[in-house]
Design a protein around this nucleic acid. Structure first.
Lengths: 217, 217
DNA sequence: GATATTTTTGGTGTCACTGCAAGTTTTAAG
DNA sequence: CTTAAAACTTGCAGTGACACCAAAAATATC
């Protein structure tokens, strides 16, 4: 928890950030050790030296203690599509981003061993799994907004939302695959290879038409 | 709540089904009137004339009181794909099912006025929205299983899961569109038309390639 | 250094949900 | 028909997330 003192920030603001970080870190440590469900908010508060009420001042729900800094993840997909070169399609942009993330072990993709424990905590908590689904939904909504924006048709047109559903659905499935494999303890190198070829094949299909997906491989 | 006496069913079994139905119906009535969050399980129990504990004997969570008989919905997508004619693709099957559901006001598609209140109850309850996401996930998993089965590649191959992600994602988005429009009070006829053309365009794209989806319409 | 503003805290309450032990009803055996 | 076992309901006593409020403590403003 490294913090530098920003002159433009009063003491109050500083302490708030410290406390928030202290709480999130303390909580994550306890969750990693005992699992999400078996740690109470009161325990987090005690371990951090504050009152239980203070925890709820900073984090509206217990799950927020775990998914701190989620907004970057939620916006990522839409960002990727917005920033893509003018001559490429949205699907290509997402494919390229996934492949790039797989190639250089980007932590957001979840292939690092540190992420493995993260996934494991989620895997055995229904509440966290539900939260993850919600993050996926928000990510899809952001993508839909990006697509709608560039399509120029009004908000009554459902097409961007349906396309976003398909693209975000494939994207989520890829991330879910990584998650599943990491939780199962598969070595990162194997996961990377397996998922890479799957991404290539799946996004080829998406690009050129899922009509090409019948039986057999 | 019409029940016929099945001779093969003992009295105990009969009463159980009656009680379950009584509880689900009572609960739905209260939810429709006051909203999900403002009805307590204890109130449902009292209205049904049983003890609160009995409610939990039948329904593990409060949300299950609302989403009774959800399993049919969860299996639908996979069913549609499994039952499709041999010469059509999975995407075509889903498209055809959606269009058919839109044409004859199938209740599962959610265009009936009775479904409108259903959607509205969900819309203003975070817990129910979360549950709906979970149903969508299970539906996607079932589709993935169906695709994996017919692809013949082993369970290590992620491709069916990613394809299922895309197809189920588009499907969910279409249902979500209907839901949103109905909650907003749009007349069913308008929704039907708007969604129908969107389904046609979106699934054309999925069939022939999302590369065809750039800017402009 | 006095005062206004935030933040923290303690207290109290609600509600979903769990576990257990004591009834009560249904079923099956004799 | 009697009776004992199995299944179901209920009351009771928790636990834990979270809401609301009012009093204290910390910080900012003048």
């Amino acid at each position: 928890m490294i913090l530098r003192y920003d002159a433009a920030m009063g003491l109050r603001e500083l302490k708030k950030q410290q406390t928030r970080e202290l709480l999130a870190d303390t909580a994550m440590g306890l969750f990693a050790e005992h699992g999400f469900e078996r740690v109470t908010v009161a325990e987090v508060a005690r371990a951090a030296g504050v009152s239980p009420n203070t925890v709820f001042n900073y984090f509206p729900t217990k799950e927020d203690l775990f998914f701190d800094r989620q907004d970057a993840v939620v916006g990522h997909l839409a960002e990727v599509v917005r920033r893509r070169p003018a001559d490429s399609s949205a699907v290509d942009a997402v494919r390229a981003d996934l492949l790039a993330g797989l190639a250089d072990g980007e932590p957001t993709i979840g292939l690092t061993p540190r992420m493995a424990t993260f996934w494991r905590i989620i895997a055995d908590s229904p509440a966290l799994r539900a939260r993850l689904l919600e993050l996926g939904e928000r990510s899809e909504a952001a993508l839909a907004a990006a697509l709608a924006e560039e399509s120029g048709t009004g908000p009554a047109d459902p097409l961007p939302r349906v396309v976003a559903g398909a693209v975000a659905g494939a994207h989520r499935a890829v991330l879910g695959e990584i998650r599943r494999a990491m939780v199962a303890g598969e070595p990162a190198e194997e996961v990377r290879e397996r998922v890479r070829t799957a991404v290539e094949r799946a996004f080829d299909l998406l690009t050129s038409g899922l009509a090409g997906y019948r039986s057999g491989q």
